[in-house]
């Protein structure tokens, strides 16, 4: 949960996550290199491909902001040390808020 992003090993499956620039909502890279707000479409990358994908993402600043690696399972599920933080980024606060509070 540290606000310092952990370094992940090359072989660790990882997604590329960012914020949609126009809205601020959390997005992840899909397998075809697009962006999704749907956690079911999170793609997992490893090794050089992951690095290349991150470099490509960094060039899309009009669409997304501050892309970084997020640890995932091979099928794109959120996992690892930052699970709580990334789950909150994906699903919103863990407490009911606004009219639902």
């Amino acid at each position: 949960m540290s606000s310092v992003r952990p370094k992940l090993k090359p072989e660790t499956p990882k997604s590329i996550t960012a914020w949609e620039t126009a809205t601020g909502r959390t997005v992840w890279m899909t397998a075809d290199g697009g962006w999704t707000a749907d956690t079911a479409q999170i793609a997992a990358f490893t090794g050089d491909e992951a690095e290349e994908r991150l470099a490509a993402a960094a060039k899309q600043e009009a669409i997304i902001t501050d892309p970084y690696f997020m640890e995932v399972t091979e099928t794109g599920g959120i996992t690892g040390r930052e699970t709580l933080r990334e789950s909150i980024r994906a699903n919103g606060p863990t407490v009911a808020y606004g009219d639902k509070a």
């Binding site: 949960m1 606060p93 863990t94």
Partner: peptide, 16 residues
């Protein structure tokens, strides 16, 4: 941590 990018832990549920 329910909202803040700097937070290390949640505050709101503990307060509740």
């Amino acid at each position: 941590l329910d909202y803040c990018n700097l937070a290390n832990a949640r505050s709101i549920p503990v307060g509740q």
